[in-house]
Amino acid sequence: MQQEPVVRIEGVSKKISSKTLIHNLTLHIPAGQVFGFLGPNGAGKTTTIRMMVGLMSITEGDIFVGGHSVKNEFEQAIAQVGAIVENPEMYKFMSGYQNLLHYARMMPNISKERIHEVVELVGLQKRIHDKVRTYSLGMRQRLGVAQALLHRPKLLVLDEPTNGLDPQGIRELRDYLRHLSRIEGITVFVSSHLLSEMELMCDTVAVIQNGKLVDVRQLKGQGEESLAVPIAFDVDDLAQAARIVPGGKVEDNVFIVQTVREEIAEINARLVQAGVKVFGINKVTRSLEDQFLEMTGSESIE
């Protein structure tokens, strides 16, 4: 039996005056994944996230978190969510620890131990008693994540968390998001306009453009072995190869066959037996970037 998705976005639209920012968006976020939300600037990522966490009203449709409607059962729905929407803003005149204590008091049953636990998880032990105004952006980002995790949410929502982080910071963020999803079983919903990042950290990516869902794609996981993927053979005689292996095509000086993993060795053997020299065999991975540009490239931002 398939598990109930953590979040169900059902036919959601957002209109501000006469402008429609989100068009009839339907999206289900499965439990336990790092789920990416990808789109160029102005696509409507932040708007969608704001509706998910109740900062903006939903014009049409509804969003359910753990089965609770954000519109009608806000308190139950939001209790399962930890989030940072855009920049991680905290009370600058208080220390990181005081900020966490402040938020902890607003939620039921959060012990001092839990606060220490999340501080350790995001690696802020050394600076947690310093004033937030002395923090770098990366540290504020960590404090934001700590704040979001205090109440052990089922879902962690991060809006463009890598914005402004250096490569080292991005790498660390990626690592502990993976950790959260693998070890703690938290579902992570993360938005970004950077494709390369999404490829590295997400299991699934939903692509949004101009307020419309363009595509949902699995990046990792099941079915990879049995799926026919394009394989490129670098050979000396392309024409000969095409004759030996029907169904292949020649492209950019390589011979490409759509095939499953098991067949690759066999095709290679046939080529070699027929006297074709094989210099290399590669999986043709169209990067998400290519796919993304393919999907969104033709349309301009409205």
Binding site: V53, G54, L55, F74, E75, Q76, I78, A79, V81, A83, V85, E86, N87, E89, M90, Y91, K92, Y103, M106, M107, P108, Q147, H151
Partner: peptide, 14 residues
Amino acid sequence: SWGTIKLLLIRPWS
């Protein structure tokens, strides 16, 4: 003005 309203409003309170 501090931007903390966002974190405040996503507590489990109406």
